[in-house]
Each structure stands twice: as structure tokens, then as C-alpha cells.
Design a protein around this nucleic acid. Sequence first.
DNA 1: CTTTATGGTGGAAGGGCTTTCAAAAGTAGT
DNA 2: ACTACTTTTGAAAGCCCTTCCACCATAAAG
Lengths: 338, 338
Amino acid sequence: MAVTIYDIAREAKVGIGTVSRVLNNSANVTRQTRDRVLTVAAKLNYQPHAFAQALARKRSSTLNAIIPFFSNYFFIQVLQGVQETLIAHGFDLIIHGANTQEQAEEYLLHSTRKGRVDGTMLFSLGLPDHVAQEYVKKDIPLILVDTFHPMFDSIRVDNIEGAKRATKHLISLGHTSIGMINAKEKSVPARERLMSFKETLQSSGIVIFDEIIVNSTLDKDDGFSRESGYEAVQELFRRNIKMPSAFFVSSDIQAIGVIAALQEHNFSVPDDVAIVSFDDIELAKYFELTTMRQPMFAMGELAVKKMLERIEKPSAPVSSINFTPDLIIRSSCGAKKI
Amino acid sequence: MAVTIYDIAREAKVGIGTVSRVLNNSANVTRQTRDRVLTVAAKLNYQPHAFAQALARKRSSTLNAIIPFFSNYFFIQVLQGVQETLIAHGFDLIIHGANTQEQAEEYLLHSTRKGRVDGTMLFSLGLPDHVAQEYVKKDIPLILVDTFHPMFDSIRVDNIEGAKRATKHLISLGHTSIGMINAKEKSVPARERLMSFKETLQSSGIVIFDEIIVNSTLDKDDGFSRESGYEAVQELFRRNIKMPSAFFVSSDIQAIGVIAALQEHNFSVPDDVAIVSFDDIELAKYFELTTMRQPMFAMGELAVKKMLERIEKPSAPVSSINFTPDLIIRSSCGAKKI
DNA sequence: CTTTATGGTGGAAGGGCTTTCAAAAGTAGT
DNA sequence: ACTACTTTTGAAAGCCCTTCCACCATAAAG
């Protein structure tokens, strides 16, 4: 039913090879033949058959993305960057939303089916070694975004620099008693943010009080949750600790919980306690959070570019790129009047 | 390099036809041969080549989804439903995030490339007639979610019933002066919600005051935006109109703007003005909005099921299914104490 | 012990494209 | 006008699978 290159060849009185060459802009075709073929193709409304092409070319022009479904705003943004770049290169995107690490592994292994996709991009989820082996063995391009493995290209957010900027901002506002509400320490970003927070305080000559630094004890989303922030503050009140004048919170979503808990105890933000958090998710705007924005669109864009480079040169050295988050000032830090 | 059915055939000393039959669980293969082939396949770690399969089978086991990127939470949820169902049936999902109606059309036409996908699902975006023609002509299954066209299967939210329930809830709480903050009237859901709101008031014997019914004048997202809600309330204050004791707002995101505007004028929610909105997006929980929840996961699930049915029976009569939203009571309506 | 079913099997024929190869046509040099 | 190239072109081979058809065994029936 569908029109094939054979139809075009017959109609244009050329061979199928010529048709293919014209359609692929290969060299060595006369202007005349080219025009004739193109005209016929347009007349018949020819559409190349993607699968036949993929089979013959041994590449599919399709990429795989494995992303966590739960933390949505970040990924919607990154995906926009991914997609716009992809479209520009004529690639398609197959998406696997993972809710758990196990699911991610399953998809990773699943999309190993050679030929199906030209490469896969993994977002924010861990890459277990045995899966990494599989990718190396089958030689499938893999780009990591917001996660890391020494054997693959990765694109990350510079948590060290981000936490440093956030902390410095609080210091610059005159705070000297600064606490931190952190996610679970087992999470890499959480650890990095905590470390940099402490270092920045230290190098600024501010005393670090361990009792106003709380690591989440909740498991959900590695402690990057509203409940986690809420609970951390409640714990501080329970322990009857004097509140610091400012908190650095490891994510916006936690900050929302922090604010709620503080309000329950009649502490207002930013008047009694200033807050700077991390991520700049959609909610941040509505809650007027001062936060560290991650260049999400740009990260998505770059992920695709890296992928195309990797497909081009499979043996190029592994690269790792860091994006530095920007400080977005809203009213939760007290620097700006509402 | 990759292992093919020929390798298996040679190794297992059978014909390629037999290998294919075993791998596809076709009948008429001895237990012995089956086992032998399966053993060899496992040993060689055989992975079928998706494109070759698609080419031979004339179907790709891949679906297309075209969704608006902007209103994210709703779609993330729907997508989860879509994906989990898809996975269960061994399908892949290609996603096109559209930011505008034009982009959606482009993708719709683009994914018309026969053979690439077995069908496409369109979410919340309009289907222009000329595109519809194209799909009918090429006989590509198309399922509409949260949008409508008489020639294709559709899955929708029952705005009439939803608005009715929301309005009745406010009435049941004793309100007699109820206004509505609506999105742009050109949007179909907006029109339906408004109409049902009015009808419900009428049939309950409540007077309708047109001056406390505001249709958005802002274009962005058809008026389903925070600014739109904020602006509508400001307009009411500007016109110096007596505030009603309750508002039905056509979406959660607008309700957030409504609350902000009311607060600026020292009206508290729900004490001075009660609010019921629509959607139950993620934000709704944090803002304690009483709202009409759309069964998003179930809609995604059903979309896929409908699609599979349609692929199965291309000539089955077109169906249209309505989901009824559920009333989620939080504190913005004043029914529940915080 | 033939005949007729019937399950089991191998392999060719596609499916629609790219690419290679060799032949045909064109160009230039003499 | 003839040789020596260079371009252009048609067609076959291959990508990897499914499916159809013909053939071979058996087993059941006569």
C-alpha cells in the first residue's frame, strides 16, 4: 500500500539506487535526475520507512531516556532541552519513567536490546556496576545526567559550588548562626552539599554547630521530600534547640516542609529564620524561595550533544561536565522585600 | 557481530524457521527442539533485532504520545498510567512534548510516517480537521485524551459533572453568593465548567450574578494560569464589586492566584471566601485546595487499552469515554478545619 | 501393508531500505 | 576518432526477521 522507492524508481525511470542516493543527498547525481526523482517523490507523497532505514543503516536515530518520574519539574525542564535538540537532529526519544532504582535497572538492561536505540541517557539514578559492564560490553553509548560513573560521560550540577554560593549569600546577609537541613547522607548530592556548606562556614570563620545540622532520617526520595524537611525542624524543636537565624536547606521541597514546621511554632520566614534552598522547582516561585537554580534546559541540551558526539566517536575519552547553579533571590532569605 | 537467528539455527542444528517459531511461541514444535533452541538462544544471549522484527511483522510495538509540556503535573501522572500499561504489553513510547498548538500539529503530521509507530495518542491539544483527514486516510490509530474529535476514540473528563459536584459542595456548605473564576471561554473545558456551574446554581434556586463570574482575558495557557486567577480577582476589586462568599475556580493553578490576590486585600481563605477548584495538581495539596481530582493514572491506562483495542479492530465503532472527577476536600472550602 | 491425515521442519520469499560493484555514459586529452 | 579517465547509474546483495509453502516423518485408518 505504502509508496516505496521502487514506485519512485519506476515512475521516474531510474534505478532504486539512484532514488536512494537522491533522497540521502549523496553526491554524484545529476541535477536533472535529482529533480526528476524529487518531483516524483513529492507527487507520490513518499515517506521513508523508518524501520527499513534503521535496518539497512544499522542505526535507528532513536535515543532512550530513563528518568525518575517522581521529581517531576526538574525533569520536565531537562526533557524540554533534550527534546528540542533531538528534534533538530531528526532523532526520536523513547522514554522510560522509573519510580525506583530497581525499575531503572530493569529499563537499562531492557534497552540494551541492540539496534533498538542508538544510545541511552540516564537521569539522576544510580548506575550499578553490573549494568555498566553490560553497556561497555555491548558498546552502547550511555550519557549520565545528574549522576555519575567513571566509565561514562556525565553531566552534573556542581553541588560544591552551589552550596558554597548559597551559604555565602546567607553569610553576606549578616547571619552568623546558620543551620542546615539536609537530605539523607547516603545520597551523593546531599553529602556534597553538606560538605561544601561546612567548608564555606569554616573558611568564613563561622562556628559550626552540629546540633543545628540535620540529616534526614526518612527514606522516601532519599530525604528530598516535604515530610523530611518538616520532620527535621520538628526534631529540632523537640530537642529544644535554639533556632539559628538562617537555614540552608538541601532542596526546595524540603524547604516547604521546613517553612510549614516553623510556622507551626510561630517562627516566620524570613523575619525569624531566613532560608536558602536548592533546585528552583516550580513550587519555589509560589513559596517565594530563594534557591539555587539548576540550568535544566541547558543540561538536557548538552546531554543530547554529548550523546551525538559519543555516537560519532565511540572511543573518545570520557568527559564529565559540571554546571554551576545560579542563586535566585526571592523573599525567603530576607534580602528582598515582598 | 550481534547474534542472529542464523547463529542459533546453526548451533542448534535446526532451520531458521524453527528458531523463529520457537522464539514466537508458535505451535507445532517438539518439546525437544524447543528446548534445544531455547538453550542455545540463552547461551548466545540472543536479543531479537527490534527493527527487523518491525519490518517483517509490519508493526512496531511502539506508540507515539503528543503532550503539552507546559501543564506538567497532570501529564506526568497520565504518563505513568500510559507507561505502566504499555510496558506490560511490550510496547515502547515515543514522546513529543509540544509547547504550542502549532508544534502539536507538526508532530502529529510528522508521526504520520507509516510504520514508525503503531498509533498515536494526543493529549489535551486540539485536532485540526486537516490533520484528522490525514489520519483517517492513512488509517493510523489515534486516541484522544482530554480532547475531542468525532472521528476518533476519546477519553475525557466529565467537566459538566465535575463542575456540578464542585458547585453543589459549595451550596451544601451554605453559600448563596457564589462566583466563578474561569479560564478563557474559547477553551472547551472552560466553557463546559462554566455552563454546568450556572445550571447547577439555577437548578438549586440560587441567583446568578454575572458580575461575579469572570472569564480570563489572558491568553497564556488559555487562561489556565496563576496570573489569570490573580488578575481576575484584581479586576473584581477594581470594579469595586462585593465579593461573594465562595468561588468556583476552573483550575488549581488559577486558584493559587485567586488566593494571593484575595490575601493582598486582606480576605482570608476560607474564612472570608471559600474556594473549590479543579484538577488536583501537585500544588493543590500544599495550598490546601479543595478541588476536583481527575483520575489521571486511570486515564493513561485506559488510553493505552483503547489503543490496543483499536489496533486490534481498526473498524470498531468510535468510542468516547468520560471520567468523572472526584471531590477532594481540603481546607480551602472551609468544610474541614486545619 | 498401503493410504491418508497430521504434526514438525527447512528454507525461500518477502519487508523497504542502503551500499557496493560493475557497467554505461560522459569528458578530456591527443 | 580513439584512448584513458571520471561521473553517473542500475541492480544485486545484505540488514534480520516472519511467514508461507513444500516436504518429510510419523501415526492412524483402511
